[in-house]
Amino acid sequence: MTSQTITAGGTWTLGDRTVHRIGFGAMRLAQTGEALVGDAVPRDRDRAVDVLRRAVDLGVNHIDTAAFYFSPLRSANELINRALAPYPEDLVLVTKVGPGRDPSGEWIPHARPDQLRGQVEENLRQLGRDHLDVVNLRIVGSDSIAERFGALAELRQAGLVRHLGLSNVQPHHLAEAQAIAPVVCVQNMYGIGVRPDQDAFVRTCGEQGIAFVPFYAIAGTGREGGADAGGAESPEVAAVAREHGVSTARVRLAWTLRQGPHVLAIPGTGDPDHLADNVAAATLQLSQDDLARLSAAHRGQSPR
């Protein structure tokens, strides 16, 4: 496999930064087992570094991360810094703020508007950057985000942040944010059989030229544990994978990319073979019959 493989999936523009539509999610780099729990087992540092470098070698130029992705001995941001700095000019690092974790791993659900600058600065420090390409405001719940998003808009004006996005949001949050500053991406949970209620929101983002970036797109019922976490795979996904002679993860990613040219994928892994398989999804051609079966499974409908 060469770096040209990833180009088959096309590109999208996040503000003024162009990225391949298959990126890399750094969440699982820092730990094995259930994601983001305080007692997660740290991954091997050298292996994580090798995976990041291999991702860039394969053409990945969009990496999703956060300062709160860490385990007792590993930080995803610092692994990225060690592996990739000085950064390639085309590499786009996307991070998120809003939640936080104390050193023990305990969650702090919501940062106040006045705390967001500190979170941005911590990401800058860990990544070794003087600005962040994209910062997503991640939220929980349906409350107004105006004050928090406004605080990030001020950091954008100050030059610490280049572009802004949203994570784990509802359509009214997007409208609220757009009244304050431009939004280049929305990052929500989405995949075959995962949040079919998001279908209309995916289309809305495309109509407005906003990237939609699903997380857990290949995990299925495994969610945080990953695609091989032991959850039962959809029979339709498994059947399409058998017919093409590929993994179910590759099928899930290929379906994700077919949901619109603005839909990006950020599968994460600490395994070099899984990384190569994920990137190869850019070349998987699903037929109209494949798409119909997979979309019916996504919506919970009976196969024809």
Rank of each mutant, 00 (worst) to 15 (best):
G100K: 00
A211D: 08
D289N: 03
E34G: 07
A111E: 05
A158R: 10
V19C: 06
A175V: 12
R162T: 14
T11M: 02
A296G: 02
H131S: 12
T13G: 00
A76Q: 04
R162H: 13
P303E: 01
A153V: 01
G128R: 00
P72R: 06
H20F: 06
V37Y: 10
P72H: 02
W12A: 12
R47E: 15
L152C: 06
Q115L: 09
A153K: 04
C205K: 05
R129H: 00
G193M: 08
D16A: 11
A146G: 03
A281L: 05
N81E: 14
L14P: 01
H173V: 07
V56K: 02
A85Y: 09
L52G: 06
L29T: 06
G209E: 04
V41M: 11
L166M: 08
R74L: 12
R43V: 15
F68D: 08
D39L: 05
A280V: 09
L84P: 01
F212S: 05
L93C: 02
L284P: 04
E176Q: 15
R223V: 11
H172W: 13
S104V: 03
E233P: 07
L29I: 09
G300P: 02
S142M: 07
R138T: 12
L79C: 02
N278T: 06
V184T: 11
G100L: 03
N77Y: 06
D64G: 05
G245I: 10
R242S: 04
T221Y: 10
T32A: 14
P267S: 04
H298Q: 03
T7K: 14
E207D: 15
A48F: 13
T32W: 06
E121D: 12
A181S: 14
A229C: 08
L79I: 10
A35E: 10
Q187R: 03
A85L: 04
Q198G: 00
G15H: 02
T13K: 15
R258H: 15
A276K: 02
A181D: 14
L164E: 12
F24M: 09
R299N: 05
H274L: 13
V186Q: 03
L137S: 05
A66D: 00
F212L: 08
G230N: 08
Q119M: 14
V279T: 09
G230H: 13
G23S: 08
R138E: 11
A276Q: 13
V37P: 07
A76K: 00
R250V: 14
A111S: 15
S144K: 14
L174A: 07
V194M: 13
R195H: 13
H62C: 14
Y87P: 01
A280N: 07
I218G: 02
V135Q: 07
R17I: 01
P235G: 06
G128I: 03
R45P: 10
Q31R: 07
A217I: 00
W255H: 01
T13I: 03
V246M: 12
K96A: 04
R156Q: 15
R162V: 09
G10D: 10
R112C: 00
A265Y: 04
